[in-house]
Design a binder for these strands. Sequence first.
DNA 1: TTACGGCCTGTACCCCACTACAGGGTCAAT
DNA 2: ATTGACCCTGTAGTGGGGTACAGGCCGTAA
Lengths: 157, 157
Amino acid sequence: MRARNKIRAISGGRQTLTIGQVAQLSGVGIETIRFYEREGLIPEPPRRESGYRDYPPEVVKRIQFIKKAQELGFSLKDAKELLSLRIKPNTTCAVVKTKASQKIASIDEKIQDLERMKSALAKLTTACDERGPISECPILDAVEAGIFQAQSKGEKR
Amino acid sequence: MRARNKIRAISGGRQTLTIGQVAQLSGVGIETIRFYEREGLIPEPPRRESGYRDYPPEVVKRIQFIKKAQELGFSLKDAKELLSLRIKPNTTCAVVKTKASQKIASIDEKIQDLERMKSALAKLTTACDERGPISECPILDAVEAGIFQAQSKGEKR
DNA sequence: TTACGGCCTGTACCCCACTACAGGGTCAAT
DNA sequence: ATTGACCCTGTAGTGGGGTACAGGCCGTAA
């Protein structure tokens, strides 16, 4: 009953991981890892004689990146694109830069939107403090003022 | 005698919208609107004698908010919660504040993660400019350095 | 009054991202 | 040698979030 078994590969000896270890370390299910492999999100790992997948530890970070990207509203396809953005000898720099700056732009947009949401929520708590004769739903007020749409037009409610 | 059917309700006369008009203005399909209604994301609108849904214009902003929230990695359930955060006469202020600050915290986390992604991408373009003997995949480097995991623990970067 | 687009309900179907078996081989401790 | 956890391939099913009809009523310009 050696629970130590689980971390054997990490703490010493062998430098590779089984799929189960990868799953545990990255916080996803085994099936998800095989799914990502099928979808080309993570590379096919080498196999042992037994046919077992033999993972390098880096794959854990890659999977965590994928999960993060998803939480931030990117699809798996987006995540794949992000991960494949790299400088390869025969890729022109211009191409990489173009793609990267597109991604940066879309990230900036998300950040802006999140900031607007955040300030709407902040307004809500403030209104709560003041307990004055304030509208009963500041978020909707913000929404109705077009927080995401009319922002740059200088409109007000 | 009402001409210009499509914008009639918007430009003058009647202050309400048909489902088709709402769809067009908010950039989603008609079926999506009915779906949101079934799911309780937008209130059931009053009906005309004909049975047609008769929307107040505010619903457009509400739908746009829902769409934005989705793009930012919130589920429809999350969006519903965000929209229902309001100060009602019989809701205690404390409850609202607690929920709001939880939402704000999760938004802040998203912003942090996006900033980290962004800087990884920025590094990529810089590396590209310098054309030096730099790693071929800065994003993965960042990932491998645990940009999302080790950050808050004061670990190396 | 007819044509034709818009709206109604209801049901079925679709894509994405998993998740769960079934049936069978592997590995390490007992 | 056996046990039981772990891994394999393959296929099927699930839940979220829509999307697409079918069959039928409404509304209005010609």
